[in-house]
């Protein structure tokens, strides 16, 4: 473990067609994705899915993206807040930080969540993870 910088533990990536997200919401309502009404639903959906992939969440946890709150505007930076059943799981696997990035190209939103292990000993575990 190097003393400088953070060690990348895992990268979770997720890509989605923004129009497909809009169509799903149009067809099944705003509750379909269990996302807050603010901001781009495709961005918020992609960020949550990328985060769950970075956490290597098993199916039971991966299905609970509604337990992830995301603070921040469409451009970021974002802060993740783990709640419900995702919170204890995240505490058990997260020993550092999660860095989030989003790119949008040709209507396709791609989110990356980079799970790092801090070079310094982690602070007492908390569920809120500022990036």
């Amino acid at each position: 473990m190097p003393e400088h910088g953070d060690a990348v533990l895992r990268v979770g990536s997720y890509s989605v067609d923004a129009a497909a997200v809009d169509q799903l919401i149009a067809r099944h309502g705003t509750e379909a994705l269990r996302l807050p009404a603010t901001g781009s639903p495709a961005v918020r959906w992609a960020l949550r899915q990328a985060t769950l992939r970075a956490l290597a969440a098993p199916p039971r946890i991966a299905a609970r993206w509604g337990d992830i709150a995301l603070r921040g505007d469409g451009e970021g930076p974002w802060t993740l807040l783990f709640k419900g059943e995702v919170a204890p799981y995240a505490r058990s696997v997260l020993h550092g930080d999660i860095a989030l990035t989003v790119t949008t190209r040709a209507g396709r939103v791609t989110a990356h969540a980079v799970l790092t292990r801090a070079a310094t000993p982690p602070a007492p575990r908390e569920t809120e993870v500022p990036r």
Binding site: L9, R53, A56, P58, P59, R60, I61, Y89
Partner: peptide
């Protein structure tokens, strides 16, 4: 299967 036993840290 418990969460911690379903997969490893690499998924």
């Amino acid at each position: 299967v418990p969460d911690a036993e379903f997969c490893d840290a690499r998924g």
